[in-house]
Computed example of a mutant assay.
Amino acid sequence: MNLPDLISAFVKAENDYEIDAYVACFTPDAVVFDEGKNHQGRNQIKTWKEETNEKYHTVMEPIEYSGYDDMGKLSAMISGTFEGSPILFSFQFKFADGLIQSLKITN
């Protein structure tokens, strides 16, 4: 699948458990919404990602991507140590300055 460079970097960092590379995909004041909670700023995003990596040990397999300049949507099969694995998740992105400004993760 041909993904934009930023999304490819995001997926690679996710699957390689590279927390710093993952966080570098986001603007300094970015917001991630996951499991009913907002995580704002790179420090909170880093803490959230460390916790979810430890808890779920996820692997992301991109299925479909659509988007334009400031928005994108990635559908990906996520497997890990959680009930119902694997599950198809939707990652809705808003971009600013070539980075992720917001990310909403739903299933």
Rank of each mutant, 00 (worst) to 15 (best):
K49R: 11
N53C: 11
D20F: 12
N43W: 07
D29P: 02
A21F: 11
A30R: 05
K12I: 09
K55G: 01
E18A: 14
P86V: 11
A24M: 13
F33Q: 03
A76Y: 13
N38E: 15
T47D: 11
C25E: 09
H39K: 02
E64N: 05
K37F: 12
F93T: 02
H39T: 01
L103F: 08
D97R: 04
K94F: 09
I105V: 15
I105K: 10
I45G: 00
D70N: 05
L99C: 00
G41A: 02
S66W: 13
D16G: 01
K104T: 07
A24T: 12
L74F: 11
E61H: 13
H39A: 00
I78R: 10
C25P: 08
G80K: 10
E14W: 15
S75R: 15
G80T: 08
T47K: 09
T58K: 12
K94R: 14
S75M: 13
E54A: 14
K12H: 07
A96W: 06
N53H: 12
I19H: 05
I100T: 00
V23L: 08
G98H: 02
I78K: 09
Y17N: 06
E18G: 05
K46C: 05
V31G: 01
A96I: 02
A24V: 14
S85D: 11
I63K: 05
E51F: 11
I105N: 08
Y22N: 01
E61R: 13
S90M: 06
K37S: 10
Q101R: 09
S90Y: 12
L74M: 09
S90D: 11
E51A: 07
I19R: 03
Y65C: 00
L103A: 01
T52A: 02
I63Y: 06
Q101W: 08
V32P: 09
M77I: 06
S102F: 04
V32L: 15
Q92W: 14
F26D: 00
C25Q: 09
S85A: 11
K55F: 11
T52F: 10
K94M: 06
E54F: 14
A96F: 04
K49G: 01
W48D: 03
V23I: 13
S85G: 07
I19S: 04
Y68L: 04
G41K: 08
Y65K: 04
Y56S: 03
K55A: 07
P62S: 03
E18P: 02
P28Q: 00
Y56A: 03
E54L: 15
E83S: 04
E54H: 14
D69Q: 12
I78Q: 09
Q40Y: 03
K49E: 08
Y17I: 08
I63G: 00
T27I: 00
D34K: 08
E35M: 15
P62A: 03
L88Q: 14
Q40F: 03
D20T: 10
I87R: 15
T106V: 13
I19K: 04
A21T: 04
N53G: 06
Q40A: 03
M71I: 10
S75I: 14
